[in-house]
Design a protein around this nucleic acid. Sequence first.
DNA 1: AGGAACTTGTGAACGCGGGCACAAACTGGC
DNA 2: GCCAGTTTGTGCCCGCGTTCACAAGTTCCT
Lengths: 241, 241
Amino acid sequence: MTATVTDVHVPRERGARGIPEATIARLPVYLRALTALSERGVASASSEELAQAAGVNSSKLRKDLSHLGSYGTRGVGYEVEYLRYQIAREIGLTQDWPVVIVGMGNLGQALAGYGGFATRGFRVAGLVDNDPARVGEVYGQMPVRHLDDLEDVVSRHRASIGVVTTPSAAAQQVADRLVGAGVSAILNFAPTVLTVPNGVDVRKVDLSIELQILAYHEQRKAHPDPLAAVVLPTDQQVRPA
Amino acid sequence: MTATVTDVHVPRERGARGIPEATIARLPVYLRALTALSERGVASASSEELAQAAGVNSSKLRKDLSHLGSYGTRGVGYEVEYLRYQIAREIGLTQDWPVVIVGMGNLGQALAGYGGFATRGFRVAGLVDNDPARVGEVYGQMPVRHLDDLEDVVSRHRASIGVVTTPSAAAQQVADRLVGAGVSAILNFAPTVLTVPNGVDVRKVDLSIELQILAYHEQRKAHPDPLAAVVLPTDQQVRPA
DNA sequence: AGGAACTTGTGAACGCGGGCACAAACTGGC
DNA sequence: GCCAGTTTGTGCCCGCGTTCACAAGTTCCT
């Protein structure tokens, strides 16, 4: 099995402390809500309040949290600071995650300067690009190095997470080299299906796909039931023999 | 799940030609695979070949396609061009979708210049920013206009899709104004939960959340079962009374 | 023409995730 | 100390999505 993951779907043993994938995906949202509450000086909150802040319903939130352990107090609620730390620890945000970004186009530059990483334990440890003209440029206080040095950058910083923001054509090759250098998790912004060895985790973010999903729903709003499945919509497109 | 996305959850009537949400999310992937095959001159392909190109398994692909209609030929496969058109039509990509981007920071600039939109029926119809210094700047052949003109930009281009790339603090306000001006679908890059009226579709893309999900799996790889749920991991964090 | 090889479309089984509803547990007032 | 009010943690059920496995339909070879 060569993985090529779009959605994560890690069927590994879910015994003991295995937490449902759907829950994992929501923990960062709870974390964000807790941080916001904390900054406003709120010391404790009920599941109902937390759920509202996170945009989910309260029973889902309670069940999610119950997978981590019993961190609330019945009749009272959850202590904001305490819960925040527990979730951060569960995700692994109490440690430092060096991240290498490959591809310094517009998107790569945007990510290099994104403040939301540093505050969550992610540290941009290296920027890499193919274009010699871009080598030496500085984004977010980090100089760009040449693609030739990719392996050096990864191993020197012990980076285990790579971000691919190259054009599609280069993405697979870059991913191969990242994996070869020791990276075991990749966030892929290139609109390509990456094939990686077992044990390497890939998540894909595709901006155009998100828009297409919205477009589908927009179309349905405009034409609730075209029943165009029977009649051909335009004569020019007929099934070739 | 291609994730990135927080679950859409549109419980609207699924009668008649209602296609499962999970299928909708994969159609753009199939579309991309078909386009790639088409460009390589491939005229027809089996579900197995398509599935491999799209990174899913073949039975899932067949069931997905079966929701659109019976566009394949048993014993043969699918005609690439024909199927490509059918999927594009189903999603709504045969028409033009004007898109307005609000927030011309690094990410907004990256999106404005992203070539992947134009080729899929999305047309950047307007760029808007709060900062007077940025007004008049041109990205992707489109000048930036001031936030004050947002309503004008939206209505003049009949935009129904808005992209929010502002800081969190401004996101909700921007979303309200977009909706007020007639937008009914929003792609939100700000790390905030947006509240919108019924009938408005919101999809959220959160870069930091994607990394956090990867971090969780990385941590589990490194420490398969810490059983630290019993013993406190560090003494400094003890449950306050 | 007939059969072997192949491929689609789909019925059926299964597992995950969501939501309801309630027992268990805690607080505060009397 | 006891009772009313509150909120968590969870057992249960239901529906969606994934996968298997096979019948139905097509092509090719003899």
